[in-house]
């Protein structure tokens, strides 16, 4: 929370500095068109029957993402991937002084639905010396610990009206065994347990192998064929509007 307030304060200070510059009559020229850039970031759930938990979206300088494939998940990511709660990951982002923005989603993104964020970058946030990357995560809630996400995808240099789309896969947090039992899956397919401390899986982040489901021979699974997916599971569309 302190970090968030710090960022808000810094933003206010930058805004004041820009106003001061304009007041001095120093404006005009090409530089001004790049002094402020506004973007929309739209996330679309591409799955058949895997609602996404509230998303955590973080803008930061590369390469330090909040999670990396092949590495052990932080407890904050474990909470998101097992229960759907993005708050610990957002708090972790807020505690980092280099993070430029951190957004929490407003709620579940149902299959076929989208959520859009709008943000404006100004001043040193647009420095060519410090390009930004996006890291995000959102739980596939009818699983043990699957999440869709991006790990430090570099933001491209977009002109106004240009866009970039990423098609993103589902990862396995590796923190909870993929038992698919009703007691361990928090989503509407089961209503079971969310976060559980302790790790009984590989303890490393991998591309998720997919769920098996009872219909495909995993006897204790509460899931059916509708809960399966193929990659990609999430479309991320960044558009520069200003």
């Amino acid at each position: 929370m302190t970090a968030m307030m710090h960022r808000v304060r810094r933003f206010w200070w930058l805004g004041a500095a820009l106003v001061a510059l304009t007041a001095c009559g120093g404006g005009g020229g090409d530089a001004d068109t790049d002094a402020r850039r506004t973007f929309t970031l739209q996330l679309t759930n591409l799955t058949a029957n895997q609602p996404f938990g509230p998303v955590a979206v973080v803008l930061h300088p590369p390469p330090d993402a909040l999670w990396l494939p092949g590495e052990s998940a932080s407890e904050a990511l474990e909470v998101l991937a097992e229960s759907g709660d993005p708050q610990p990951l957002l708090d972790a982002a807020d505690s980092r002084t280099d993070v430029v923005r951190a957004f929490g989603g407003s709620g579940v993104i149902s299959p076929g639905s989208s959520e859009t964020f709008t943000f404006t970058l100004t001043g040193d946030e647009l420095s060519a010396d410090r390009p930004l990357a996006v890291t995000l995560a959102t739980m596939l809630v009818n699983t043990n610990d699957a999440f869709a996400g991006a790990s430090g995808e570099a933001l491209p240099d977009l002109g106004i009206g240009e866009r970039r789309i990423w098609y993103l896969p589902a990862y396995d947090a590796g923190t909870e065994a993929n038992s698919e039992t009703a007691a361990t899956i928090p989503g509407p397919a089961a209503g079971g347990e969310g976060f559980a401390a302790g790790r009984d899986d590989q303890d490393r982040i991998a591309i998720h192998p997919g769920v098996i489901s009872a219909q495909d021979g995993l006897a204790d699974s509460v899931l059916d064929g509708s809960h399966r997916w193929d990659n990609p599971v999430l479309a991320l569309e960044l558009t520069r509007t200003e």
């Binding site: 896969p169 591309i207 098996i212 193929d230």
Partner: peptide, 13 residues
């Protein structure tokens, strides 16, 4: 083992 050896793409980065 269907809980261990299955995969979905991509398999490497």
């Amino acid at each position: 083992d269907h809980t261990v050896h299955r995969w979905l793409n991509p398999v490497a980065r």
